[in-house]
Design a protein around this nucleic acid. Structure first.
Lengths: 163, 163
DNA sequence: CGTGAATGGTTGAAGCCTCAAGTCAGCACG
DNA sequence: CGTGCTGACTTGAGGCTTCAACCATTCACG
């Protein structure tokens, strides 16, 4: 495969880019799986479910509208809707019609949901620390933040979320 | 939430770590979704299916045993087995019993499968370049490689893959 | 040799996500 | 008012992944 980069022949990744990409591909595949495994084993939650509860727990009144919450958890509205039904059945959150705008649904974290987050967070934080931060110097941590923001800017330009 | 770090009270993430983690969490959630979308739209393949075909295409004789291929594609053996059946139905790969070890199945990329990779790679590479490398300086690219390898070392210590 | 353990892979069921379609509320305009 | 349009969300079907159970083969070791 050439590296000339003509019009219909795309610029291939050079060796360095290729290795970097394989490494990143491994991370984006395996890291979510590892976090899901820890949460599933210790709390019976998927990473997405945990994100939903955790994001809600940091909101004023532990409340957010569905579409906003979907963005915070980096998922589609449809996905959130399905997950919200399951979490509601388990008593971790409640959905209420918004009095100001009849189209809007507000998701509210229940006391049981808040307790679940409090019980689950330490193990999850420990996993994140072990899998990500323990292997990095503080300089690398700063670099990672910048790099992550840059990539996120490309992947998700308007900060919201497709669905 | 305190930051004392006693025995049963875990060390919480400080503000900087927390922001870094939210950024990385966004990347590991949204980047695979974006790549899946491009591949699905332009080639009718999932990112995992593409990885399977692409990894095979770079092997001598375009052949690998199933468990080895699962590791290369960062998936479980079960997942690969299901995917291999679908790819086989589409004529992109074939499975043969290994003559040397009756337990082993070898996956072989067919000519149609190789052609599919050749046809699909340019668009995929362009997506990776746009989503990842276009936003980074060459220094950041080098940093990303190191950081990715470090994290991968924690997530996947023995280089193989859970299944 | 022969038996038990370990390895490599496949399968079926159950659950989750995506996609497209549908519902209902607000808004604009005649 | 009422007609059409957009926005917010829900729902159902279909496909993919996971999990556990299973089958076949090889290896270890009396």
């Amino acid at each position: 495969m050439s590296t000339t980069g003509s019009a219909d022949e795309p610029r291939w990744l050079d060796d360095d880019e290729r290795t970097t990409w394989l490494s990143l591909a491994g991370v984006v595949t395996l890291l979510p799986a590892a976090l899901d495994a820890q949460l599933q084993r210790d709390a019976g939650l998927s990473h997405f479910e945990y994100m939903v509860l955790a994001m809600l727990s940091e909101r004023p009144s532990r409340t957010a509208r569905m579409s906003e919450l979907a963005g915070l958890a980096h998922g589609s509205l449809s996905r959130l809707s399905h997950v919200a039904r399951r979490l509601e059945e388990q008593g971790f959150l409640a959905r209420r019609a918004c009095p100001e705008d009849g189209r809007v649904t507000n998701a509210v974290l229940t006391d049981a949901g808040y307790a679940k987050v409090v019980a689950t967070a330490p193990g999850h934080v420990a996993a994140v620390r072990h899998l990500v931060f323990d292997a990095l110097t503080s300089a690398q941590r700063r670099q990672l933040r910048t790099i992550g923001d840059r990539i996120l800017g490309q992947v998700n330009p308007d900060g919201s979320c497709a669905g």
